[in-house]
Write a protein that binds this DNA or RNA. Structure first.
Lengths: 357, 357
DNA sequence: CAACTACGAAAAATCGATTTACTCATTCCT
DNA sequence: AGGAATGAGTAAATCGATTTTTCGTAGTTG
């Protein structure tokens, strides 16, 4: 229990040492669990620790080692469920191993990403979990390589020649989505994506397209890719549907490759008074809590956050502890939740416009 | 620019000193911007810094000061937009002042909250931004008080006798919600809340109730409060609506005092085939991105995250820099977004059951 | 011209641990 | 019994900065 003097200065290892009548070195050994200490002395140390409420100062403790017991985590943002859960998991795992997690948001900027990384390098972190804004070949990964930092890349990555990578197996998930949509009878499908994520988006798109074409060679797949930001996508989508509506040609299903795309698609449906699944079906990559309570519930690909976090940390600590060998690229399987937003085409009134009330 | 040797050991202040032909103390002064250094020597230091790619080690730099340039942030969770935005803001503000933000999630546990705080105390953080799980009188705040830590409490707090507090003015917002619902003609309203948040929930409830009663003395206000967890709320809500449906007595509007409650209410509406706003109106405290894209858009109270974060940091740094005086309790005004989920009672088919397709 | 003040910089102490090197005792072995 | 090996502990060096103290030189003053 902590007594007195708490307000003043905290007890240092020397205070404990003098109180226990031993040297600071002995106290350090006892705290580290070294066995070559006489039981009697160890007990005296424990007593002194108890009486003074002593706790090791992690900062001072880390001073002498080259790698400090700090793990850095860099995420593109904190606002989404996905990265929120990711940070929660990573923090928990780091803590389990006696490390402190320092999380930072690159706010979707590659410049900031690198600045943060430089700052983490200043802190001499033992390792970094980096979810790059764009992909594995960004400036941050470059910086890590150049400075001999150890790290793991997650999420918007496929594989790298310098770092282990862990990400959702979005190609396989997209394959499954394609299978489901084709089975339900869809033959005209729009895929919506963000070009920024390059490789991963391509993997999702390829997985989807190849499977769809294999199962139904007559399928028509349109693609709307925004370059870097979400707002342009909204405009592109508006234009796309505008054209389609004129010619009477309209997809019967939309597969969005990322969460914001699902939101944009939904809001565009709303604007036009289309309802899921009667007027159009919708599946999104990435799940969110609200998707199952709205009407209709939105079908989604659920990413295995825990697995990604778990294997990322595993890989990271293996490297921190000196693990050698070529980088490993892991893909974690996703779950596809087909909810009510997906139906068969031509089943509903397909009103094509006007709100229902 | 960083040359060679990066892979090896990073340059220390002594490396810079010897390269510049001065003492380490001089280098330290130059880095700190002290003016009592001969311009010529300062230049030599700058050159050496440049050549060696030297950057100050924040850990070593913090060693000698009692308060380190670290700010701790403790949030109940990271998964929601609200706390995600909060952490993003806090991080950005801390960084602006040259501090590092270490964020941790208490995962809605008061025990964990205190453990995290103890660990932050070990790190001798300069200050803490604490969003308590329950309210201002939790074990964490107690710990801070007992150990003379400086901190600010946010979100689920009203005012405290030891710390500054910053939170959304949820009572005023609730007043506005009441005004709107009464104006639309609602005379039977259900309020849904979580008892855990005690004081703040009571403030919201009181603000709502008193205004509603003042404007329409004949209004009937039912309250469903879950004790600690969300799942019981679902059951309670189910039971509540079950009874009401039998007697034909059913509220025409629901005001949820927290985000998950809004989700639970929505999913319960779904289960019963009720649609907003025809069958029932819904307003929730706390906004989310999806609420404006679903059909119908859900009305919500928008919390001023930036203001809360900004004033919390302002207050915190004022205390860190030695500011005295009694604790200040700040309330930041919210915005109420009345969206389509709110209508007038009796305007729609009020079908009372059965899905629409 | 001796004494005094200023200034700039170096030397040394400090922060709070860990780790290395070294000192005594014992104990073990031939 | 002499010498090596082991055990238990301590003093001192170390990590990389900051801060205090000390010191030398230059400039000012009486």
């Amino acid at each position: 229990m902590a007594h007195r003097q708490d307000q003043q200065r905290r007890a240092s290892i020397h205070d404990v040492a003098s109180r226990a009548g031993v040297s600071a070195a002995t106290v350090s050994k006892v705290m580290a669990g070294v066995t070559t200490v006489k039981p009697e002395n160890a007990q005296r140390v424990f007593d002194a620790v108890e009486q003074l409420g002593y706790r090791v100062d992690p900062l001072a403790s880390d001073m002498r080692r080259a790698k400090r017991r700090i793990i850095g985590a860099i995420m593109p943002e904190f606002e989404s469920e996905f990265f929120g859960q990711m940070v929660t998991q990573l923090e928990s795992l780091a803590e389990q191993r006696g490390y402190t997690l320092v999380a930072a948001s690159s706010r979707e900027s590659e410049t900031r990403e690198k600045e943060i990384l430089a700052r983490m390098h200043d802190w001499r972190v033992a390792g970094v979990v980096l979810a790059p804004v764009r992909n594995e070949h960004g400036p941050a990964a470059e910086f890590m390589k150049a400075n001999g930092m150890t790290g793991v890349l997650i999420d918007r990555v496929l594989s790298d020649d310098a770092f282990d990578t862990v990400s959702a197996d979005s190609a396989a998930a997209s394959t499954e989505v394609a299978r489901e949509l084709i089975a339900k009878g869809h033959r005209h499908i729009l895929v919506v994506g963000l070009g920024e994520q390059a490789a991963t988006v391509r993997a999702r798109l390829d997985g989807f397209r190849s499977t769809a074409l294999k199962l139904a060679p007559d399928v028509r797949i349109d693609v709307v890719l925004a370059e870097t930001d979400v707002e342009p996508l909204r405009a592109q989508l508006r234009e796309y549907f505008g054209q389609g509506a004129n010619g009477g040609e309209r997809p019967t299903a939309v597969y969005s490759l990322f969460l914001k795309g699902t939101l944009v698609a939904l809001s565009e449906f709303r604007r036009r008074g289309w309802h899921c699944p009667n007027d159009i079906s919708l599946v999104g990559f990435d799940d969110a809590e609200w998707m199952q309570v709205t009407w209709p519930a939105i079908a989604a690909v659920v990413q295995p956050v825990r697995q990604i976090a778990g294997h990322a940390m595993e890989a990271l600590f293996a490297r921190i502890e000196g693990g050698e060998g070529p980088p490993i690229a892991r893909l974690e399987p996703c779950r596809v939740l087909m909810r009510e937003s997906v139906g068969s085409p031509g089943n509903g009134p397909h009103s094509g416009g006007g709100h229902r009330q």
